[in-house]
């Protein structure tokens, strides 16, 4: 078809086009291969780089909320326990008090490390207990379940003799009940292995301690 209608002027242009047509697909093939390689590598790298960042617990996740709020909850248990360790009367009370204080302080360290590893701030943007269903409703006077009021803490600090033991035991039993409630809530929603491991340990420890605290409470009364 081309040959029949082609004039001299066009034969001058035609070869140029043919050359281009012959060369282009090959050049295009190499280019395409390079582009595919580069894009593929970039996507793979980005995927590998971003996946852990995107799948780790986020700022408003239950895991982050738990880590922050349980830190607050634990801090008060440490305060109560150290006070009891210093001023309680019964050796058994002082013994379990120092156990609780150091154990929970250690757990605070673990939870704070999670937040750092997740690139999250120790302080969240949402109010405490927001991560828990009905969590906000369980707060009273800005306190999480089981936490003592500042008046109760003041009384404990100022108490003397067996009253220290009695007040500490009563406060710590409530504190552990509230704590276990929060641990149960995070165990229900999380699948982060480290969170599951630490939360399960907390629950088992606090349940055992609860039994001992109830025993000691009977001793402190009688």
């Amino acid at each position: 078809m081309n040959a029949t209608g082609t004039t001299d002027r066009e034969t001058a242009t035609a070869p140029e086009v043919d050359q281009g047509e012959a060369r282009l697909p090959r050049r295009f093939g190499v280019l395409a291969l390079a582009v595919i390689l580069v894009v593929g590598l970039l996507l793979g790298y980005a995927g590998g780089f971003l996946t852990p960042q995107l799948t780790r617990p986020g700022d408003s996740s239950p895991e982050a909320g738990f880590a922050r709020d349980m830190t607050t909850h634990h801090s008060q248990a440490v305060e109560m326990s150290l006070t009891a360790y210093r001023s309680a009367t019964l050796p058994g009370v002082r013994q379990i008090a120092v156990d609780i204080a150091t154990g929970q302080q250690g757990e605070i360290g673990a939870m704070q490390t999670w937040l750092r590893e997740w690139n999250l701030s120790p302080t969240g943007s949402e109010p405490p207990m927001s991560w828990m269903p009905d969590g906000r409703a369980s707060m009273r006077d800005g306190l999480m379940p089981g936490m003592a009021t500042s008046d109760q803490m003041k009384q404990l600090r100022e108490a003397q003799g067996i009253a220290v033991d009695q007040q500490f035991l009563s406060l710590m039993i409530d504190h552990h009940l509230g704590g276990i409630h929060m641990v149960d809530a995070v165990l229900k929603v999380t699948d982060d292995p480290e969170v599951v491991r630490v939360a399960s340990t907390m629950k088992a420890t606090q349940q055992n301690e609860l039994n001992s605290l109830l025993d000691l409470q009977r001793q402190a009364k009688g």
Binding site: M1, N2, G5, T6, T7, E10, T13, A14, V17, E21
Partner: peptide, 15 residues
């Protein structure tokens, strides 16, 4: 440019 010759070649009055 590749298209142009094709169109032209089928035309009866090239000039």
């Amino acid at each position: 440019p590749e298209r142009r010759p094709t169109v032209v070649s089928t035309g009866k009055k090239p000039a």
